[in-house]
């Protein structure tokens, strides 16, 4: 390996302690275990993630272009994309608005039960998706605690796209709050004081000073919630109703195809879904480096 030499030469050392010792020869490879650690990491990564994931592309490549295209553009499949995309977007928007309010209140205000609420924000992360699914369905079913009063108002939630959006909102909330929270906490109060002392009203300060500083984190949280929603299965499948063309999400369609042993069709749809989430992930990475740069610029 030609690269193994260059790998060892530069451990990330920037401290004063280090500088004062100068370029002592023992620095090269003072810390042991690099080869073992990296070797095991790469081996395990290939075994558990890369090899399994590459079969998807290998399999979809064997479909041929026309077979692939007809599998991913069938009307039932396109309907599922529209539903999944639309409901995920709506859920991310709801979380974008309410997540911002929740974060603001959790960081800036004091109220009884605040720490409990703060801890509970991670509940959708911790709760198995199947449990979330059956619980939300039971709550919003026509005879449920919330479904019954909503039914009287003429609003049907369970087994409609609205129910899907609701479930996706549930699982997406922590992404927005937990991305925004550290940024809002670390926001320098002097900036707001400066704006106020220069004569800005509170609303102006928030709109022109606070929100622009929060924007990169906010859009990152939004994108994370959206990306998670696109692939979500467990919490949605119970409340969705799963009617083809109407309330059938893409991940469910993949499972249906698998159960019918239509592996080619399932593979093609999965490849499209996977590519969409990779594009999103790349975008999120860009966003995060952007917000990091903004943070250091201030």
């Amino acid at each position: 390996m030609t690269t193994s030499e260059s790998r060892r030469t530069a451990p990330p050392v920037k401290s004063r302690w280090k500088l004062s010792l100068g370029r002592g020869s023992f620095h090269r490879g003072v810390l042991p275990g690099f080869g073992l650690a990296l070797g095991f990491t790469l081996f395990y990564l290939c075994l558990v993630v890369l090899i399994p994931l590459s079969t998807l592309f290998w399999k979809s490549a064997s479909l041929g272009a026309s077979g692939f295209w007809s599998a991913v553009s069938a009307p039932r499949v396109v309907a599922s994309y529209k539903l999944t995309f639309g409901a995920s977007l709506a859920a991310a928007c709801i979380n974008g608005v309410f997540g911002l309010v929740v974060t603001w209140v959790l960081v800036r205000y004091r109220f009884p039960g605040k720490r409990l609420m703060d801890a509970l924000v991670d509940f959708p992360f911790a709760l198995p998706t199947a449990v979330a699914g059956i619980t939300l369905t039971t709550l919003y079913a026509p005879h449920g605690w919330l479904g019954a009063p909503l039914e009287k108002l003429g609003v049907k939630v369970a087994f409609t796209p609205l129910g899907i959006t609701l479930a996706l909102t549930f699982i997406g909330l922590p992404f927005v709050v937990r991305t925004l929270q550290p940024v809002l906490e670390n926001l320098d109060p002097e900036v707001e004081e400066a704006a106020a002392s220069l004569g800005a009203s509170r609303l102006q300060t928030i709109l022109r000073v606070v929100l622009p500083a929060l924007f990169p984190a906010w859009i990152t949280g939004f994108a994370l919630a959206f990306a998670r929603a696109l692939g979500e299965y467990g919490s949605v499948v119970f409340i969705a109703g799963n009617m083809p063309m109407k309330t059938e999400i893409t991940p469910l369609l993949i499972i249906t195809k698998l159960e019918q042993y239509d592996y080619a069709g399932a593979t093609a749809i999965a490849t499209v879904t996977l590519l969409a989430s990779f594009v999103l992930l790349l975008g999120i990475n860009r966003l995060q480096s952007w917000s990091a740069r903004l943070g250091t610029a201030e």
């Binding site: 692939g231 993949i254 399932a266 989430s277």
Partner: peptide, 10 residues
């Protein structure tokens, strides 16, 4: 970034 369904499917 991979949907759970796809994680099982591979």
């Amino acid at each position: 970034g991979v949907s759970p369904v796809i994680s099982g499917m591979v």
